[in-house]
Simulated assay, not measured.
Amino acid sequence: MQSAKPFKIPESVLVVIHTPDLQVLLIERADHPGYWQSVTGSKDAPDEPLAETARREVEEETGISGGTLTDWNLVNVYDIYPHWRHRYAPGVTRNTEHVFGLLLPGPTVPRLAPREHLAWQWLPWHEAADRCFSPSNAEAVLQLPRFVAVEAAP
């Protein structure tokens, strides 16, 4: 007999995968076609370091390993969409999301997890922001030029 899937931890990461020239990778959700996003995912354990969560989720969802991971020190707290609340313990309605950037030298072809995502695309940052279904994801992408300028500063 298979045990029930454990509830998701309401603390997650959002990872904006990008190139130096501000191209952003977006992936389309399998459970909601037409919903485009950056890599997201919850901690596997309460004590899992956020950077480890970010790297794990990127590799699980895109097959990408490597690159320069930067904690943008941005935190979003938001209401969990009602159609996803069943994944969390009863009474949990809010999630805390930590934003990271993952700099790659150039666009790469991801290896999507087919149960999670249907398609991918690289877009210029402003087009990617417009395509994101999540307001916090769109806002993070809009912050990209500022963070790339900081990363490139001597």
Rank of each mutant, 00 (worst) to 15 (best):
V13S: 00
R87L: 15
P114M: 06
P110A: 11
A140P: 02
E139D: 07
F147S: 05
Q37E: 11
S3E: 12
K8D: 11
V92S: 08
I9L: 08
A4E: 13
V77M: 13
L144I: 01
P10T: 00
V24K: 12
R55K: 11
S12M: 14
E59R: 09
T108H: 11
G34L: 10
W84T: 08
P107D: 06
E151Y: 01
L22E: 15
Q2W: 10
D79A: 15
A140H: 01
P10C: 00
T53E: 08
D71Q: 04
A140S: 13
T70D: 10
R87Y: 15
D31G: 05
L14R: 02
V39T: 05
S42Q: 14
G106C: 13
G34V: 12
V141H: 07
F7S: 08
Y81A: 14
A54F: 09
N73E: 04
A152K: 10
P145S: 13
A89Y: 03
M1Q: 08
T40K: 12
R131A: 15
Y78G: 14
D31Q: 14
A138N: 07
R85A: 11
N137Q: 15
D21R: 08
S136E: 04
L25K: 01
T96Y: 06
L103R: 15
I27V: 14
H83W: 04
A128K: 07
K43L: 15
T108N: 00
R87P: 05
